[in-house]
Structures are given as structure tokens and as C-alpha cells.
Design a protein around this nucleic acid. Structure first.
Lengths: 258, 258
DNA sequence: CAATCTTTGTGCACGCGTTCACAAAGACAT
DNA sequence: ATGTCTTTGTGAACGCGTGCACAAAGATTG
């Protein structure tokens, strides 16, 4: 495997590739579905199909966890569910706070997938005093002023940021200072955090833009000429659209802070 | 998913790496912010910092688009904004439909980032008859029965699925049959689509589980034996080793091609 | 017990993406 | 013009992830 080129005295064991980690939840979901149907065992081929991946990849992924399969038979569903859950740390309970209870924050709070597997919404936090006390998804919203106390009291280490872009970095800083070490960021901003803090981002407009790129490429393949002429080599042309996208107050303008 | 660029031997060297495409929206956002502050030029170093990436990576990314920089000076902000917009296909308008107007669908409909940059919510669709006609974000919700007609009448090629998992595949099939060739899926399900259709997925619980994994690993490093868990099974994890986590890794959008 | 069949686990090769490091290009000062 | 300084653009090396292909392991059958 990953070569023995470690500058470290070995102990490779814990080296689960990031790409594999990202797929484990996918396997877990498929396995859970099988479990609910009381399917006792499953082959790499079947499970791979259910998870939408290649079977060789799946087997290699599992090989990083250990040898949990039986040749000629497949994998024991229940056992694998347990092993993956354990590996992902889902056998324990993770209190999570959601900061920014706008449309998106409320949607997240209501999202069932949260509670289902190891995660628990410990608190909802918003900067709007008018929101304070108001229940969302059965949980009363608390004011940003109490953020630090909430984090501490609940032992929260995972925070979800669903604020407008302008507030994201500030909220992030406070979360981190209060002890949060993992952040899921829905605000369209690049967050900077100290080493040791993990940030993952979910950005709708980026996803759409990537789709648009491919969509345009598809369209261009048919219309040979559609490929746009050479760049207007000279003076910088300004993009047609305005570019000022201060969303109507609501959520997240697609711009960065300073 | 190899993004069907396979069947095309490349009209020319238009082979922009997928990883680069995924970063272009990031650069565009940073550039737009600079543009609004009337900054005329920017160096790869500065822009890279704003976008949260490595400057060498940024320069290489731009090199795929052409040579738009000036040595000793940097890049012309306005010009670059235009070039990237054009490359991403944002100089044209993309009508988008959102299917499934629950909490999440409504949040998406209200999301400002939509309209701002090349995308327009052409229609909201929901299976609940009670929703029909009810305006969300100023747009009346239409019933699923009219899905095909809506797609056709508006020339929609990008669809957003925000339905419950159980309905996602069915909705997907109908969207594709009606002509949609790009799908952004928020439902926690693996969608299967014919070749030529792009699917990107956004999955909250997967993101959380990935964070939990890293969170657990961090905790395990300090409390060798603590935490009740039983990671003993394998060899002991080396305490100071890794350095893997790397928070500000910037890249790796929390979304993956499906 | 031996033969056969199924399915895992993995060595290996390949390709993509990242990063380094530096020559070339241009701006700018003298 | 000439030299210096800044910053781009890219060749090359490296590492990670993917997929192939097959030997090993165990089930199953006769």
C-alpha cells in the first residue's frame, strides 16, 4: 500500500485515505438500508452497486478498516454497520450547534438526518434578538451573545454556520475560540481557521457554476461555432451583468468580506 | 461519471481539469469582491490567499484558460472576471427548477446567490397539491404533474432536487426524460442517470460524518485510552504523526461528483 | 477428502492533481 | 539602453486515488 516511505516509525495502521473516509458514510447508508430489510450478508458487488461505486474500490476501502469479509460469501451486514459506525465515530453522540437561523438554518434544524445518526442539535443560535426564544424545530433559538457559554455547557465540538457571508468569519472565530474544532460552512466565504480545525464547505452557487460549465460544454459540442470567439484580446471587457449581488437582505450575498 | 468528455477527442486543447473547474467559482468570487472595491490588478499570491488556495495552483489553473496575466504586474481583475465568467458559461442565463419545496427547497428558492450570477429560478415544483399556487420567494409553486411541460416551456437544463430521499430517483427520472441534463441533488440518495447527465450531490449527513471521523481522531490522539470507545483493535495511533487534517485545505468542496 | 465455485483482499500500473523551482517576460529606474 | 526587480507560466517530480487482474481463502458439492 502506501509505500513504506514514512518519515515516521511506521504504525501505518491508522492511515485511512481521505477519499475512503468520504465514502464510508455512503456505504453505511446502503448497509443500513439492507439491515432494515434484514439482509444478512452482501457481496462487494451488490453493495458497490447500491452505493454507486466500483466494487474494487469498495473492497479496497474496506481493506483499510481490516478484513471484515468472508471469501466466497461477502460481508456480514450488521457487523459492517457496526465497524463503519465505530470508525466514523458515530457510536458516540455529537452535540452540534447551528448558527444563523434563517431559511437555511431552519431547514437544517428540521432535517431529520441529523438526529438519526449520532448527531444531536444541541442549540440554535441567531444574532437577531427577535428570534430569541422562538422555537424552531422544537428548539428555542438563543442569542449570539451566549454562544461561548452554549458551546462550553454542551461540550460542542462541531458547529454549523448558516449565516450570511458577511458574518461567517466572525462567527467562525468565536466558535473556534470557544472550543469548536470542526465546522460545516454553508456561507459562501472562505473561512480561515487555525491548524487543527477542520472546515468543510457546502456552497450552492459553486455547485451550480460547475454544472453550468459542463452544461455549456455539452451545448458547445453540438454547436461547433458556439464556442465563442477568441478573447477580446485587448481591453478588459466588463462582464455583462451588473455584478452587484447584494441579495435582497435575505441570505448570503455571494460576496466575500474584506 | 467520467463526465462524458470521453467521446470527444477534444476539439482542441480545451481540456480543463475537473479540479480546476471546481476552483474557478472560488476565484470568481474573490475577483468579484476585488472588482467591487475597484482594485485594478491582483497578483497570484494575493488572489490565491483570498481564495484560500496555493498560488502555484492558481497560476496553473489560469494557465489552462490562457495567458491572461502580465509578468511583473499580475492579473487584470475585470478582464479575469470576464474570462472566468465566460469559461463557466455564466454570461448566459440558466433557468433552473427546484423540485421539492419543503424547508430546504424554500430556503434554496430564497437563496440570493441564485439570481445573482447567471441563474434564474424558473419554477418551483412540489408534489403536494396544497402547495400549488402558493408563492414561495415570490414564485408560485406548481404541481409535479406539470413538470414535463414546465421543463420544456422554459428550456430548463438544470434541475435541483430537494425532495425526500424516497421520491428523488423518480423525480430525477422525470427530469431527465424531460430534457434536464444537469442535476444538483440534495436528497440523501444515490441517483442513477444515463450517460451524458451530470449529477452533483450535496449531502449534509455525509459531511457531518466526515467531520465526526476527524473529530474522533483528534480526540483519540490526546486521550490515548480515553473516550470509552474501543479503537484498540489495531495498532496504536501515533500521537504527533499525521498533520493530515489540514483545516484550510480550501479545496475539496463538500460536494462530490456523483 | 478432493474438486469446484464464489468472492475477497491486494500487488501493480496508470493517470490526475499538486507542488516545487526556475527561466522567461515584462515593468520600472537610472 | 541597460540593468534590476517582480511576477508569471510551466517543466518535471511526486504522491494519491483508481481500476485491473489474479492469487488466496473459504464455502459447497460429490
Amino acid at each position: 500500500m502506501a509505500t513504506g516511505r514514512t518519515h515516521r516509525p511506521a504504525t501505518r495502521s491508522r492511515g485511512i485515505p481521505e477519499a475512503t473516509v468520504a465514502r464510508l458514510p455512503l456505504y453505511l447508508r446502503a448497509l443500513t438500508a439492507l439491515s432494515e430489510r434484514s439482509v444478512p450478508t452482501v457481496s462487494s458487488e451488490e453493495l458497490a452497486a447500491a452505493a454507486g461505486v466500483n466494487s474494487a474500490k469498495l473492497r479496497k476501502d474496506f481493506s483499510y478498516l481490516g478484513s471484515y469479509g468472508t471469501r466466497g460469501v461477502g460481508y456480514d451486514v450488521e457487523y459492517l454497520v457496526y465497524q463503519i459506525s465505530r470508525e466514523l465515530g458515530l457510536t458516540q453522540d455529537w452535540p452540534v450547534v447551528i448558527v444563523g437561523i434563517g431559511n437555511l438554518g431552519a431547514a437544517l434544524a428540521n432535517y431529520g438526518g441529523f438526529a438519526s445518526r449520532g448527531f444531536r442539535v444541541a442549540a440554535l443560535i441567531d444574532a437577531d434578538p427577535a428570534m430569541a426564544g422562538k422555537p424552531v424545530a422544537g428548539i428555542p433559538v438563543q442569542h449570539t451573545d451566549d454562544l461561548e457559554k452554549i458551546i462550553e455547557d454542551n461540550g460542542v465540538s462541531i458547529g454549523v454556520i448558516a449565516t450570511p457571508a458577511g458574518a461567517a468569519q466572525q462567527v467562525c472565530d468565536r466558535l473556534v475560540a470557544a472550543g469548536v474544532t470542526s465546522i460545516l460552512n454553508f456561507a459562501p466565504t472562505v473561512l480561515s481557521v487555525p491548524d487543527g480545525v477542520d472546515v468543510r464547505k457546502v456552497d450552492l452557487s459553486i455547485e451550480l457554476q460547475i454544472l453550468a460549465f459542463h452544461e455549456q460544454r455539452k451545448a458547445g459540442e453540438e454547436t461547433a461555432a458556439g464556442d465563442g470567439a477568441l478573447p477580446a484580446a485587448t481591453a478588459p471587457a466588463v462582464a455583462a451583468d451588473d455584478s452587484t449581488d447584494q441579495g435582497p437582505d435575505g441570505d448570503v450575498p455571494a460576496v466575500m468580506p474584506a
